[in-house]
């Protein structure tokens, strides 16, 4: 059997896109940079302790006292490791990536719940996005968007978006048929059906998707730092590559603390009625 020229083809495609679509990629790059900067400005505006109190207050409102206290202590802990500036950088990257992933992912999920053909096309693409090792698209991302936070955001979006699409799709498909019939029988228009019946009933599942999306974004932090994302990931990466075990451990701990806070914050909503 002759060797299939998939690799060569992919290289050719990347080269073609890089040259011919340069304008588009620079536009995307500029746009995402603006978003990251905005996120960073907002997050770094208050001193860390004000931020900690705000997060604790949200946690208290959404889930429980315990989580609120944990969030407060967690952010002080991160500051205590002198890692708050790195955390701000990581958070702005994650929020930008998650926001874009959700803005694309949730509508895609809604559409694929309504259209079986679209769903059939999307499924293998989502599989690919989720299982293709991140390193494989890290380099093309750099080729398109140059080194820095932008290719990191793009890679994170690719990896983190599938659960948002899948769970939105699932949530809407799980709405009982009788409720859809009820909506139709009272003469709902498509948007009334979507916003008054399907989305509210799918909300717990969609929120689980949002939660997954954030968690997966966080899990990309270290990998993304390899292409210049900075933040907590680069603390870990530097620690590992220079054999500073303690530094890597501290960076890793900070990632875990942030992960737990974000997870509980987003889960609290979906578990509560």
């Amino acid at each position: 059997m002759p060797r299939l020229p998939i690799g060569a083809g992919f290289e050719g495609l990347v080269d073609y896109l890089r040259v011919s679509w340069r304008g588009l990629f620079s536009a995307i790059r500029a746009f995402i940079e603006v978003l990251i900067d905005a996120a960073e400005t907002v997050i770094s505006f208050p001193p860390f302790w004000v931020f900690a109190i705000i997060i604790a207050a949200i946690a208290y409102k959404r889930s429980s006292k315990g989580i609120a206290i944990f969030s407060l202590l967690g952010i002080f802990f991160v500051e205590g490791l002198n890692l708050w500036p790195a955390t701000v950088s990581t958070l702005s990257l994650i929020f930008t990536a998650t926001a874009i992933a959700l803005i694309i992912g949730i509508p895609l999920g809604i559409l694929s719940a309504k259209s079986d053909p679209l769903n059939a096309v999307l499924r293998p693409i989502l599989d690919l996005m989720q299982t293709m090792p991140a390193f494989v698209y890290l380099i093309p991302a750099v080729l398109f968007f140059r080194i820095g936070q932008v290719p990191a955001v793009i890679s994170t979006i690719i990896f983190a978006m599938p659960p948002a699409v899948r769970l939105t799709n699932l949530g809407i498909r799980q709405v009982p048929k009788e409720l859809i019939e009820a909506g139709e029988s009272f003469g709902s228009l498509w948007h009334q059906m979507l916003f008054k019946i399907q989305l509210p009933l799918a909300m717990p599942t969609i929120m689980a998707g949002v939660n997954q999306c954030i968690m997966l974004s966080l899990s990309m932090v270290v990998i993304a730092s390899m292409i210049g994302a900075g933040g907590l990931g680069s603390v870990v990466l530097t620690g590992v590559s220079t054999l500073k075990v303690g530094m890597a451990f501290e960076g890793g701990l900070a990632v875990v603390v942030i992960a737990i806070i974000l997870d509980r914050l987003t889960q609290g909503k979906s578990l509560k009625k």
Partner: peptide
């Protein structure tokens, strides 16, 4: 017609 002339009641209630 669905809005004004006919309304339906369902076996399993179909309440939101």
């Amino acid at each position: 017609v669905r809005r004004t002339a006919m309304s339906m009641v369902f076996q399993n209630f179909a309440l939101l």
